[in-house]
Design a protein around this nucleic acid. Sequence first.
DNA 1: CACGGGATCGTCT
DNA 2: GACGATCCCGTGT
Length: 201
Amino acid sequence: MKLSKKFYQSNDVVQISKDLLGKVLVTNFNNQLTSGIIVETEAYRAPDDKACHAYKNRKTERTKTMFEAGGIAYIYLCYGIHHLFNIVTSTEGNAHAVLIRAIEPIENVELMLKRRNFSTSKPQLTAGPGVLTKALGITTSNNGLDIMKKNSPIWVEDRGVEVPKNTMIASPRVGVGYAEECATWPWRFRIKNNRWTSNAK
DNA sequence: CACGGGATCGTCT
DNA sequence: GACGATCCCGTGT
């Protein structure tokens, strides 16, 4: 039920981004489990994708994580505030990753509310890449973590949630205006009519 | 509801 | 020294 090497190390990051819809992202920090269904993702793919941090296979202290074999976490700080969670895919040397953009809360909503300083549950709790990590307790200190490993505090499960193809919506990625022609690539995926996705643009 | 700006800091030039 | 793979809150309608 935990996704394994075979899932993460395929070379088609766009397909993996679609396949992740309906899978369940789980964290367990300090013996406190929280989880949610992945309802929105984005694909990033070096070397040709200008929106990807590793465009042209640019390898730096930050991006070197993306070049590792699939199945590890790539987490970085955005705008000095938000911790963005990606899953590295493909095999070693291919810098591909899927950004998790929104989840539908399942387990331990109370703890997620507390982490977000919310009093009641609403879509803004976990709709958006920077806020779902806060709700799940994920930070940049988890960068490089092997999420396939036993006892990893972060992992993804298949719980048999079916997401029919005709309920998946593809659209351009957000916040990547600088990526020129790549900014229009329809590499953002979401589940149709799901109220837990971040706002459409 | 749309829009605009401030927050805040690691990363790369 | 500039700028984000964002979010939140204030203002105006």
